[in-house]
Write a protein that binds this DNA or RNA. Structure first.
Lengths: 127, 127
DNA sequence: TATTTGTTATACAACAAATATAACAGGTAA
DNA sequence: TTACCTGTTATATTTGTTGTATAACAAATA
């Protein structure tokens, strides 16, 4: 498991870990059914406390990205996930804010869409 | 100034304020050169401390959305803003994470782009 | 001079983030 | 059974963030 943390970032550790796991799933480095390292293993591997890893795993579980099996540990869910409406609304709020920012930075609609397509090309074909 | 705060949200007050000001500028409710309420005025108006408003104004200043003039107070910057590369990189990171999430939620590229276009339609013609 | 700006400083309370230990409960395998 | 591996729970501590409360300061205005 390749995780890179910036301990000087203003972004919390559990959030950095959260984001990197989501990106790994989207890119196909992790796929449905794959098991993640045990909380103690990953914690030691990247030099943080086991509770911090556990917190990340539980958020990912609540949002539908992971299943936590007492026997096997944390597993990547069957994709696509089916998020709660609350989570989906939050997702749209974030998207609205990002589009607003891009507009104020002078990006045209086409520029923004081109950037999106660029990212989507890294996700093609999995799930 | 129409601001709606949720004091039960897990999102900090200064961040809620930050987001609503950005959306107001993007939608044209606030435009280049407009002055925002004085920190004390807005703080009293929405029932929070002046330092919380001041924190928001300063973040918006650092990111380029506002100019803070000692005589006139806080003004909306000339648009479009020209963000620091650091801020632009952060913007792209957020966009990447959002596209990844949408992919894992089963959204197709076209669905995502349709949602983006929908937001951009509210921004047309200003700046 | 009095008022209005943002700014700075200090203190305090409440909360979140992260760590440190320890112990517990369920499942697996020697 | 015993030992070991999961995640889980509980408690305590440290540190940083958030938000409030007061007070004072400097610059510009009227």
């Amino acid at each position: 498991m390749l995780i890179e943390l910036d301990f000087n970032s203003q972004k919390p550790i559990y959030e950095q870990l959260y984001e990197q796991i989501i990106l790994s799933i989207a890119k196909g480095t992790l796929t449905s059914g794959d098991s993640l390292p045990a909380v103690r293993t990953l914690a030691e591997e990247i030099g943080i406390n086991l509770h911090t890893v556990n917190k990340t795993y539980n958020i990912l579980k609540d949002e539908g990205y992971l299943l936590i099996d007492r026997r096997k540990g944390a597993l990547v869910s069957k994709l696509p996930i089916t998020p709660k409406t609350e989570y989906h609304d939050h997702f749209l709020d974030e998207l609205q804010l990002l589009t607003a920012k891009s507009h104020l930075m002078g990006m045209k609609e086409d520029d923004f869409i081109a950037a999106c397509k660029n990212y989507f090309n890294h996700y093609k074909g999995e799930l």
